[in-house]
């Protein structure tokens, strides 16, 4: 430990350390910034490709917050992110639409439902019920729709279903207004 020197030295020392810290972090940020952006895009791309297997790229429509998967420059459909409160916390869902308004399918991007119950919304037996549904059919079976809830996890299943349907309606509304 350094000896206690005159009054200003500690302050100068601390300031110096903070400056070095800022410099080091600015440098790290400069190196990693592009990588982090790429990683985020990659993640969306990986999910998109499971919905649109023939896609070879995608563009992002910033104005409408839409992801457009492309194959040989031709759009294959549309995709966007829906969010809905589940049993515990927000579930965020990637919703894919065919060029018309039928559902291409959904993927769960983020959830923190109860393991063993609600967390089963990420499993394929649940997700495979969605492709091909018309907007009005995206409800649980007991509410007149075509999606079976997961046993013991009605709240989580309902959150996904309602979240997806509302998001599609909102999105179509928004697009309809603008065109």
């Amino acid at each position: 430990m350094g000896t206690r020197t005159n009054g200003f030295f500690p302050v100068i020392f601390l300031t110096l350390i903070v400056f070095i810290s800022v410099a080091a972090l600015t440098l790290t940020d400069a190196i990693t910034k592009d990588k982090i952006e790429l990683a985020k895009e990659d993640e969306i791309a990986r999910m998109l490709i499971t919905l649109f297997p023939q896609m070879d790229g995608f563009t992002y429509d910033e104005q409408n917050d839409l992801y457009i998967p492309l194959a040989e420059q031709q759009p294959l459909g549309r995709a966007f992110i829906a969010e809905q409160s589940g049993y515990s916390g927000v579930i965020s869902i990637l919703v894919g639409l065919e060029p018309d308004t039928t559902l291409r399918g959904i993927r769960i991007i983020f959830q923190q439902e109860t393991p063993g119950l609600g967390a089963k919304i990420v499993e394929s037996f649940f997700l495979q019920q969605f492709p091909g549904l018309a907007v009005d059919d995206i409800k649980l079976t007991k509410k007149g729709g075509k999606v079976d809830a997961i046993t013991g996890a009605t709240t989580s299943s309902s959150a996904v279903v309602e979240g997806v349907r509302k998001a599609i309606l909102d999105k179509l509304n928004q697009l309809g207004r603008e065109t």
């Binding site: 430990m1 350094g2 206690r4 500690p10 020392f13 601390l14």
Partner: peptide
């Protein structure tokens, strides 16, 4: 050996 004792925790 250079850190002033008074500001060691913030440092």
């Amino acid at each position: 050996n250079h850190v002033p004792v008074r500001v060691r925790i913030p440092v």
